[in-house]
């Protein structure tokens, strides 16, 4: 499904949302949520292709795969947090969106801990104590 289909799909969905919004605002929010889900389901094949290329490059450069895996997980968490935060902001709940973003940051930091510790250890090894 190429780019133009995706944009037209989103435009159709937004028109449908406007129609359904006056009578049933809850189902209109579901419509927005479903459109976001479908668009990302389409994108995920291309994203997995990109990630396959990234992992191919790292294995060729025989880097430690743990770092790349953490980066991919962080990208995933960042996207989900942003997706959830935007959806709740669409529903009109700005405070809840901020909470979701905070949770996303906490989990990203959680993932980054091993990398930070390894960086600090390597730096300490350089210092001739």
């Amino acid at each position: 499904m190429d780019f133009f289909q995706l944009v037209s799909f989103a435009l159709i969905a937004s028109i449908l949302v406007i129609i359904v919004k006056e009578q049933q605002s809850s189902i209109a929010f579901f419509l927005v949520l479903l459109t976001g889900i479908i668009i990302f389901l389409v994108l995920i094949q291309y994203i997995s292709e990109i990630f396959r290329m990234i992992t191919y490059v790292t294995t060729k450069a025989n880097l430690n795969f743990m770092y790349v895996e953490t980066i991919l997980k962080i990208i995933g968490i960042a996207y989900i947090a942003e997706f959830g935060a935007q959806m709740t902001r669409d529903a009109g709940l700005g405070s809840l969106a901020a909470k979701i973003e905070l949770a996303g940051k906490v989990f990203i930091l959680l993932l980054a801990i091993p990398i930070i510790t390894s960086v600090i250890e390597t730096v300490l090894n350089f210092i001739p104590v």
């Binding site: 799909f9 359904v20 189902i27």
Partner: peptide, 13 residues
């Protein structure tokens, strides 16, 4: 996907 979208809009209406 488009038909799914129209179904949900139809249910709402």
């Amino acid at each position: 996907d488009a038909s799914l979208l129209f179904q949900i809009a139809g249910i709402g209406i």
